[in-house]
Design a protein around this nucleic acid. Structure first.
Lengths: 347, 347
DNA sequence: GGCCGTTGTTGGAACGCTCCAACGACAGGG
DNA sequence: CCCTGTCGTTGGAGCGTTCCAACAACGGCC
């Protein structure tokens, strides 16, 4: 009676569902997507058949015919940096809210970044969010020519298809300096972050704020880096200065933790004899055994906005590049206070 | 002369490359995959045409015809926990080394976990790595019936298609207790982690080791949790015990940081009057301003092995479930020492 | 009773690729 | 000179979907 169709190999397809429900594959497609044109009886039969077979639509086939993958690619420079982890969280939430999938790439070394992004482009991701990156301007622009790109936390490379979302690092540094100045500090040293473009902005903000406070001559930038060890080393150098500072403004929280260790090791009272301000405001700085005063970036907002900017382009609402700079805020915790007394050079 | 073919809309396809190189699409396919059967002259022409057009293979089409996506799905419970971030790094490296792509899902609440995994299955991922999860046993087994699953850090749910890779939490707890006992501690309290299955193992290990050291009567488990605040609260409770412990073994590093804050707040000398041991051995514990003694999990190995176990199944090398338990190690830092003197109840 | 519109359904083309059977050209051997 | 291989190449089928034009059935209207 019924046609002895070949037993379906592998996973059931729409055709298997159609056969079982006794309708055409077109109607199954319609019914599964909830079309109102399908008669209730057919719809129920189709849904029942699909459930019985454990049918699951094939996203690759859908992507092929729809010419859209409903997928966004995300590159994260370094997951161990809580800054990036928190931004990523925001990005993922924003993308998920739109019903898109995410392909995340991370932990690559600089040389692998480009090939990994190429793999994402082969998947025809509809856009790319780069939570920082190490691409050169040419490579970034080449990618942006193919698909919309949003860069978070960096704004040094721009181009027609490139939006940026980041914190006003300069203003953040000024916030930190003004806070310390208001507490009565005059000798405020900055522990820098090397040749990182973000670190450069923070240093510039520090210099500006020092100058604005009439402390240009007290400006002291110690070469450092973005991690614990670099912060420790830079802080040791700062503590050994002839005119020892009473406060350290450090390029980021990780390095600030290293600086705290150096301060403790030097036997200085914190914050009485030495105040320390970090930058990033990650959860790390808020842990109660740390309590680091820090310039907080609106990390979740950065991630959410990055996703939003991308969908502006995906939906065709905008083609011009847009650059968003968000204001940071100072979170006052336990590592800052007024200097105990006019500093005298110790040792 | 030449056929006035329609200008290719959108991205160039293999057919556009073929037209430009003056060959058939089949030959282009062959050439792009490096077949030796293609004449050198044709190959060069094809590669040149592809480069000129900026051709990029369409992964969706390839996946459809190959009936394999060369993609692995990864679910990460919580990126902010460095434990999971470090395991993820290992997984990604392992998957990348095999030339597969990764689709990462994270930051979902418990209810979204299942639908997000369903989306991965629609993409026909060839396997799933769950870096912890909140699925019930039935849901996990249902998924494992469709595709190979490797669960990292948990081993409470098992089934035919489910491999597990985790640390020997019991042994780790024993390591911690033995270390403290060797230092001369007798009153060693445990700050627990609530109803988490991993925490249960650590508590069991603590109890065993205490019993083995003849300290069964000194066993004290304080209800806690896995974060900073919970560790702080549990530590305060521990410090208020009539027989105040001389050492705290805490369920994880985060909670241990909270405990450190409570110890400092109580004015106790660390480690002289109170030793603290954490668990996980994340980079956090190694920061020099923290220096937490901790039971380290081999996090990178867990990730790498999880990927390896998955590829065992993807490649069809194994079908039986395999459960891997890795030994932890104690990393002795600055928060443990011999108790300064026989404890007297203070306050 | 023929025509119309509506409702529900259908087959086929297309998406971009890989695979396969089969093709023409050409050289070598009988 | 024909047959046989080999080499390089080709068209077509198929992967699992969506979309579209077209269709059958049916009731209402003039």
């Amino acid at each position: 009676m019924t046609t002895a169709s070949a037993a379906p190999r592998g996973r059931p397809t729409i055709v298997d569902v159609a056969a079982r429900a006794g309708v055409s594959k077109s109607l199954v497609s319609l019914a599964l997507r909830g079309s109102a044109a399908v008669a209730p009886a057919s719809r129920d039969a189709i849904l029942a058949a699909a459930a019985e077979l454990g049918y699951r639509p094939n996203a690759a086939a859908q992507a092929l015919v729809a010419r859209s993958s409903r997928t966004v690619g995300v590159l994260v420079l370094d997951l161990h940096n809580p800054v990036f982890a928190e931004i990523l969280d925001g990005v993922l939430a924003g993308v998920r809210a739109r019903g898109y999938r995410t392909m995340v790439v991370t932990g690559t070394d600089a040389a692998q970044e480009r090939p990994e992004l190429d793999k994402l482009l082969e998947f025809r991701v509809e856009g790319l969010v780069l939570v920082s990156h190490r691409l050169d301007a040419a490579a970034l622009r080449a990618i942006a020519a193919e698909t919309p790109v949003v860069v978070a936390t960096r704004r040094d490379v721009t181009g027609p298809g490139i939006d940026t979302v980041c914190t006003d690092d300069r203003a953040g540094a000024e916030l930190a300096v003004r806070h310390l100045v208001a507490l009565g500090h005059r000798r405020i040293a900055h522990l820098g972050g090397g040749d990182d473009p973000v670190a450069a902005d923070r240093e510039a903000g520090y210099r500006d704020a020092m100058a604005a406070a009439g402390l240009e001559r007290r400006t002291a930038v110690l070469p450092g880096g973005l991690d614990d060890a670099a912060g420790y080393a830079a802080a040791r150098a700062a503590l050994a200065l002839r005119q020892r500072p009473t406060a350290l403004f450090v390029v980021n929280d990780f390095a600030a933790l290293g600086a705290l260790a150096a301060v403790a090791e030097a036997g200085l009272d914190l914050p009485g004899q030495m105040s320390v301000v970090g930058f990033d405001g990650t959860r790390l700085s808020g842990l109660r055994s740390i309590g680091l005063t820090s310039v907080a970036q609106p990390l979740a907002d950065i991630g959410r906005l990055a996703a939003e900017r991308l969908f502006d382009r995906i939906d065709g609402r905008r083609t011009r590049a847009r650059h968003t700079v968000l204001p940071p805020s100072l979170v006052d915790r336990a590592t800052t206070a007024s200097p105990r007394r006019p500093t005298t050079t110790v040792g």
